[in-house]
Amino acid sequence: MNARTEPAPAKSDAVARPPLVRELLLVAGLFLVYKFGRQLATGHTGEAFRNADRVWDLERAVHLPGEGSVQSVLLHGDTLVHVANTYYATVHFPATVAFLVWLYLRRPTHYVWARRVLATVTTVALVGHLLFPLAPPRMLAATGLVDTARVYGPSVYGPPSSDHLSNQFAAMPSLHFGWALMVAIGLIVATRSRWRWLWLLHPVLTLLVIVGTANHYWLDAIVAGVLLALTLAVIHLPHRTRTTAGRGTEHLVPAEVPVDEPTLVGAGR
């Protein structure tokens, strides 16, 4: 009898797409918890300004470049500073939502991974905002920086005393930068194009914008980057198992799930 080799009935190595309604409720719930948690951090004005003085002095002590050097570039023209303010106000949430929607539709395994990472980073950041309220550099007279959104527009914030929709003393870590960096990393990992590294322009532009508009210190972005790195070290990304012939569609499984080996049928002598 001739021996032949054929694979045993294979289990699908593609992770099923999570139920849409559950994901919508989950993401919406996380957003509401975050917004509510930010409100808990309000009312610490004195502590927020004392922490701002400490952060500003620490940056000067370790010789970080001055935030004013970035802002001076933006202030060369009204158009440039207006574009920076618009980028700050309008790109943060839509870009992150678009990133998650695309992953959900095209890379479900990567979607689950990215959602877990973003949820973890956001939760830890919320705790940081509660424990370390921080006034942004635009509020600190010692910086000599201009509140570009208030002067040139558009602005997403009102006066701190009457702004009940946001916590303006939640500068560190910067979720603007942390989310933008995760979007870039997620798209680089989930795609194969040789141009995918250009996604790093998103966090780079975001960093320049949040610093140049005086909404964040350099240290806010550094802390966000460290937090994201630690989260990625704990929540492992999926790995490729094989590529579907003719389509180039990658099937992915979490690193801890083993892939079944082919079984030899009738090959025994």
Rank of each mutant, 00 (worst) to 15 (best):
R38E: 15
L40F: 10
L40I: 01
A41G: 15
T42C: 11
T42F: 02
G43Q: 09
G46H: 14
E47I: 15
F49M: 15
F49Q: 08
R50G: 06
N51D: 10
W56R: 14
D57I: 01
V62D: 00
P65D: 00
G66Y: 04
G66H: 04
G66R: 04
E67C: 05
E67S: 11
G68I: 05
S69G: 04
Q71G: 02
V73W: 14
V73K: 12
L74Y: 08
L74W: 12
D78L: 05
T79G: 13
T79V: 12
A84L: 12
H92Q: 06
L100M: 09
W102F: 08
W102D: 00
Y104E: 02
Y104W: 14
R106G: 02
R107K: 10
R107Y: 09
R107P: 01
T109Y: 00
H110C: 03
W113H: 15
W113Y: 14
A114F: 07
V117H: 03
L118P: 07
L118W: 03
V121C: 06
V121A: 07
T122I: 03
T122G: 01
G128L: 13
H129W: 15
F132V: 12
M139I: 07
T143H: 12
V146G: 11
D147M: 13
A149F: 15
R150V: 14
V151P: 12
P154R: 01
P159N: 12
P159F: 07
P160N: 08
S161D: 15
S161E: 15
